[in-house]
Amino acid sequence: MERRTLLRTAVVGGSAVLGGALWRGAAHAAPAQPGSGPYGALGALDANGIRLPAGFTSRVIARSGQKVAGTSYTWHNAPDGGACYADGTGWIYVSNSEINPSGGASAVKFSSTGTITSAYRVLSGTRQNCAGGRTPWNTWLSCEEVDRGYVYETDPWGVKAAVRRDAMGRFKHEAAAADPVREAVYLTEDVSDGCFYRFRPTTWGDLSAGTLEVLVAGAGTSGPVTWAKVPDPSGATATRYQVSGAKRFNGGEGCYYADDTCWFTTKGDNRVWQYDAAARTIELAYDDSLVTSGTAPLTGVDNVTGSSSGDLFVAEDGGTMEICVITPSDVIAPFLRVDGQSGSEITGPAFSPDGTRLYFSSQRGTSGSSSGGITYEVRGPFRA
């Protein structure tokens, strides 16, 4: 694969792309291979059942069916995709609920010191809200993972009513990532013969109208791509079957954008893809079947996010319940592991605005049930 230099923007607080500080220029070649990670080996289990590198600590933020500490709000079942938003000197973490019916999303608000100050509902009356994505104008796109599901644009502060965005298409939505340079939102589809989409609003910042397109490419895993308009976004005929030559992806999952590149994952073949939006090409960032030595560290790929250093953090649905890091030098290694929760999956990784705290959930916790979800915070010396 061709090596190229990327200057990327992290999902941390601010008003730039997805709210963030400038990423360091770093060469990425694909696919990543196992090696020694930047944070060292995982340590012993902590009090919360998590193995972390030296210098990192964890705490439980919320548990499904229980009041969020210091509030009167009961946390939702099956916590899934999430994102963080700057809120004055503090921040907000938004989390979906992947239950059907009555999915929706909730939020936890933090002070500048990380103290929880409130928790509340931001979306109700929807179905199986799996992942989603944040917008540059600080809303949360919550995606329904059901046939002919919708995208709902929600307010992380819980002040404005959520709005259903029909123009973004009706299909089994998974995740979304906004590209302000090309004024588009990329979308994944969680079916075994799904597609990769982009939505181009008529007016950037207003998702009420626009054009839904599907990626068209050859049969390989790398090379140039084009986009074709989906004739009927309402999905009366499944959107993935409306355009001849649409490229198939095996179970689209997480989706994350940073300057000119959109990374997305496919769980059916344990791959992390990278779409170069400037060059209009795709290639593999990781594929467990292409690991050349040792055991593949990442299986059951799911949600993905990034840090200000240019590292990608990819969560596992199953596997060994790890979040793995893929560095700009194409080394992949475990960053953390949750023990004793083999019936669960890791969801919703997102960094606080200052990049020092990572939030995520174990969707079904130790019980293996949607009512057993646990949402965590990990704090420590993340690379800047």
Rank of each mutant, 00 (worst) to 15 (best):
S111F: 04
R121F: 06
R63Y: 10
P231M: 11
W204T: 01
R63T: 08
R200P: 01
S362T: 07
S308P: 07
V11H: 14
G254I: 10
A175M: 09
G372W: 11
Q128G: 00
R198A: 14
G252T: 03
A16G: 15
K247D: 15
G218R: 08
G348A: 09
S15W: 15
V151G: 01
D232R: 05
D287H: 06
A119E: 10
S102C: 02
S208T: 15
F351K: 01
S36D: 10
G373R: 10
F264C: 14
N100A: 04
G294K: 14
T89S: 13
S72M: 03
E283A: 11
T305C: 13
R248P: 08
S64D: 08
P79R: 00
A228L: 00
I50Y: 13
T265Y: 00
A178F: 13
G49Y: 06
G205M: 05
G268D: 12
T295M: 07
F249K: 04
T74F: 06
C262M: 04
W273Y: 09
Y152C: 09
T292D: 04
T211R: 04
I332R: 01
F264D: 13
V338I: 10
N138R: 12
R127N: 11
T347Y: 07
W263K: 12
I92K: 10
A86L: 10
A217E: 06
T71P: 12
P136M: 00
A44W: 01
A161C: 04
R4T: 12
D276A: 03
H76A: 11
F351Q: 01
V163L: 05
S111L: 07
Q341L: 11
P231L: 14
L42Y: 10
V325N: 13
G37Q: 09
S309A: 03
G220L: 06
D80H: 06
N77P: 11
V304L: 02
V68M: 05
A315Q: 14
D260W: 11
T299A: 14
Y359V: 08
A83K: 15
D232H: 11
P31I: 00
E144P: 14
A296I: 02
T135P: 08
W263E: 05
T292R: 02
A277F: 00
G205R: 15
I99N: 15
D46H: 09
P34V: 12
A176K: 07
K160L: 13
D190E: 14
C195F: 02
S293Q: 00
A176T: 09
A258N: 15
S97Q: 09
N250R: 15
L298N: 04
S111G: 12
M168I: 00
W91H: 07
D87N: 10
S106F: 03
S102T: 11
L215I: 12
D339F: 00
D288N: 04
R379M: 08
S234K: 02
A184G: 04
S72E: 07
Y286V: 08
T292E: 05
G310S: 02
E98D: 08
H173L: 00
L7E: 03
Q363Y: 10
S307C: 09
E145W: 03
G343D: 05
T226E: 13
L312V: 06
P381Y: 00
I50R: 11
